[in-house]
């Protein structure tokens, strides 16, 4: 009996299996290369940082140079303060900019704005620090929490703007038309119907931007500066986790190195938490938008 015409010759079948296996192997290796660094980071942070985490890390101020112990309570609060201030600066400009792009801008204007936003996204973060240093630190003759918040906020603007635009464009045109046909003014249609429909997506974009800037160090070096004590006045320098990690890790003291690892672990956990929030939010976004 003849072999089925659909059956390849054994030699050809072997060659094909080998080829398929080889390509699959290469792809798996590439995928691992993408995930592996994340696990390396988490592994080292846990090994080095977890043992150094103690209650005093979260509750105490840094000890004077040379003394063992103390914590980064002020840096943790400082980072949260700076993120809040960055949100106040970055979200209005970003969201309204995104609304302009999605609802009002002409194609020509939009091309330029998007181009500008993409360039801004690529501006090295230390350059943001230098610019804000010139605008807010030099004239007021002091480093300040305000300057740090503004530097981070400016970095948020292009990120928030582009994601806002993207989610607004996803809102079906039919909602806009339905609202306009009710005799509702256009700006109210946009603010109440369109933005509200896309609100979860915009919120997700804001959190993504926060996660992106939470670990920025360079823009804070020339602006927030850092502070070994509690900040009681936003016009004065403030501490932040990245700054404290930077200062401690280049120091010559073992105890400070230990605390730098702990700080890195806390910062990483904060960013991971923000990213997980995004995942949870965007999971049920599929259904409502």
């Amino acid at each position: 009996m003849d072999a089925s015409p659909y059956l390849p010759s054994p030699r050809f079948a072997r060659w094909r299996r080998w080829k398929s296996g080889a390509i699959t192997g290469i792809l798996v290796a590439c995928a691992l290369a993408v995930i592996a660094p994340l696990f390396l980071v988490i592994y080292f942070l846990l090994v080095r940082g977890y043992s150094s985490l103690d209650w005093s890390f979260f509750t105490q101020l840094p000890k004077p140079t040379g003394e063992v112990g103390g914590g980064m309570a002020n840096a943790i609060v400082g980072t949260l303060t700076l993120l809040a201030m960055a949100t106040v600066v970055g979200v209005p400009f970003g969201v309204f900019g995104g609304i302009y792009l999605a609802e009002y801008g002409s194609d020509r204007a939009n091309d330029w704005i998007r181009f500008a936003a993409d360039v801004l996204n690529g501006v090295p973060s230390i350059v943001w620090g230098m610019v804000v240093y010139l605008i807010l630190v030099v004239p007021f003759k002091t480093f300040s929490a305000y300057a740090g918040g503004v530097a981070l906020g400016l970095m948020m603007v292009p990120l928030v703007m582009r994601t806002t635009e993207e989610v607004l464009v996803l809102v079906p045109q039919s909602y806009r038309e339905a609202a306009l046909a009710l005799g509702i003014a256009r700006w109210k249609v946009i603010m109440v119907i369109v933005v509200r429909t896309a609100l979860k997506g915009i919120g997700t974009g804001v959190i993504v931007a926060l996660a992106r800037i939470a670990g920025e160090t360079a823009p804070l070096l020339f602006t927030a500066l850092g502070n070994n004590f509690w900040n009681h006045n936003l016009k004065e320098p403030i501490s932040a986790l990245p700054l404290q990690i930077f200062a401690y890790s280049i120091s010559p003291y073992d105890d400070w190195h230990r605390q730098a690892w702990a700080g890195a672990l806390v910062l990483m956990a904060l960013i991971l938490a923000l990213n997980i929030t995004v995942r949870v939010l965007s999971r049920d976004r599929q259904s409502t938008l």
């Binding site: 079906p172 039919s174 909602y175 038309e177 339905a178 609202a179 306009l180 046909a181 009710l182 005799g183 509702i184 003014a185 256009r186 119907i193 509200r196 429909t197 609100l199 409502t288 938008l289």
Partner: peptide
């Protein structure tokens, strides 16, 4: 045009209640 549309309403092909 907004005042016009308050007097001349419109119903569309696909029903589109506001989802929020």
């Amino acid at each position: 045009a907004t005042a016009v549309r308050r007097r001349v309403g419109m119903v569309f092909q696909k029903s589109n209640p506001f989802p929020t």
